[in-house]
Simulated scan of single mutants.
Amino acid sequence: MSKSIRFYYDLLSPTSRGLWLALKLGNKPIEYCPIALRKLEQLTDEYKKINRFQKVPAIVDGDFHLAETIAIIRYLADKGQLDEKLYPKSLEARARVDEFLEWQHLNIRLACSMFFRDAWLFPINGLAAKPKPERIQELIEGVETNLGLLELIWLEKDFLVGQQMTVADLVGASEINQLKIFHYKVDEKKFPKVAKWLDRVREATNPYHDEGLAFINMKAKQAKL
């Protein structure tokens, strides 16, 4: 009997969280191996043997090691580890999902990552001073430029690439939800489609959605104290 694929992740990482949701929804045998980024476990020699880039997420399937979220999604789909609805087999439907996954890197992911890094991650770890209000505003504007693109280009239907939720939605929503740690909330008046889409993703993925955000929400509450 073959061993389960091992999935290395940290739910603090939005890319890990999006893939974690896809695996939970797929309900296939997976060995979940948490890696605590806050404890720098990804930088250990032991983890370097798992992923030479020393990042999460990563998977190990027998002797095969793989990093990078999109590569992992494609591999797991071809191995039958993902629900076909989340990553379709149809060439055109899959291409639409891939289109968003490729687009989001330099758009919604970049903007949200910069916000998370500069407003929370670096200051809390003593790597940079708390940003000034004008810098925070610049970061928000970067995020909202991309929320506007989601509103205008990607959300013509209920989900990003049609009427059915896919991994594109899980990945995109995870990036935006990361900003909850800094108490950022999508403005429903400015971005009504985005706000409703996030609600649909949450409804479609719970209880895993809220479980995956538990650490983010805890840190957000601590920051308020």
Rank of each mutant, 00 (worst) to 15 (best):
S113I: 06
K89Q: 13
V97G: 08
A77I: 01
F115Q: 09
L76Q: 05
K85S: 13
S113Q: 14
P88H: 03
P88Q: 07
S90Y: 01
L106W: 08
R109C: 04
L101Q: 07
Y87P: 02
A93L: 14
K79A: 12
C112I: 02
E92V: 12
D83W: 00
Q104C: 01
E84F: 03
R109H: 12
I70P: 05
A77G: 04
L101E: 07
F116A: 12
A71R: 14
C112W: 03
H105W: 04
W103C: 06
E99R: 11
R94G: 08
L101M: 11
Q81M: 15
I73Y: 14
E102F: 09
S113D: 14
A93K: 13
Y75D: 07
D83L: 00
H105L: 06
F116T: 02
D98V: 00
A93N: 14
I70F: 03
R74H: 14
R96F: 05
A71W: 11
N107F: 01
G80W: 00
F115I: 00
K89I: 03
W103E: 07
V97N: 04
L82E: 05
F115H: 12
R109A: 07
R117K: 13
C112Y: 04
E84K: 09
F100H: 09
L76T: 01
G80N: 08
D118C: 08
I72K: 10
C112A: 15
V97F: 05
Y87M: 09
K85A: 12
F116S: 08
K79W: 01
D98G: 11
F100I: 10
Q104Y: 04
A93E: 15
R109Y: 05
F116L: 09
Q104T: 08
L86T: 00
F116R: 01
F115W: 11
R117S: 12
